[in-house]
Amino acid sequence: MQIPTDLLARIDEAISHYPVSKQSASLPLLHLWQEHFGFISDEAIEWIAAKLELEPIKVLGLVTFYPMFRRKAPGKHHIRVCRTLSCAMAGSYALKEKLSKAAGIEAEGHGHGAGGGCGGHGDPVTVSEDGKYSIEFVECLASCGTGPVCMVNDDFYEAVSDEEVTQILSKYQ
C-alpha cells in the first residue's frame, strides 16, 4: 500500500492531537483515509489498526457504526439530501428524486432501511451507472429553516428549488 507522504504527514499530525490515547485518532484517520481514497477498504482497516496499535475489529466496528464511513466507492461526486422533518415538509423527498433523476441514478424507494431500495443501514449509497454521482438520504443537517437542504461533496446548498437541481449538478463534472 502506497500512502502519499502528505497524507502520512496529516495522519501523524492528527495523532498528535491526542496525547493521552492514540485510539482517539481512529475517527480522524478514517476521515483522512476516506477523503483520499473514497472509502474504507479492508486494507484501510488493517493499516489504521496497525498504526494505532488496535485490533482491526475495533476499526471495522467504527466503520459499521458511523453512517458517514463507507465500505464501497461512492460516485465521483457524492450527494447528501436531508430527510428529516422540516426538510421533508419543505419537499426533500421530491428533491432527492429530482436529483437522482438528473444525476442518472436509478429511481429507488425512500428511507434508509432494506425496503429503501438501497443496501440498508451499512450501505445506504446508490451510484449512477457512469459512476459520476452517488446519492443518499441523511438525517437533519442543522439548517432546518432553509429546507430542503443538500450537500454535494463538502458544499452545502439550502432552499434548493426544482430549477436549481440541474444548475447545481452541472458544477460537478
Binding site: C140, A142, C144, G145
Partner: peptide
Amino acid sequence: DESEPGTFKDR
C-alpha cells in the same frame, strides 16, 4: 454535534 432535528444555531 448540533444534530437535534429542528435546531440550527451552533452552525
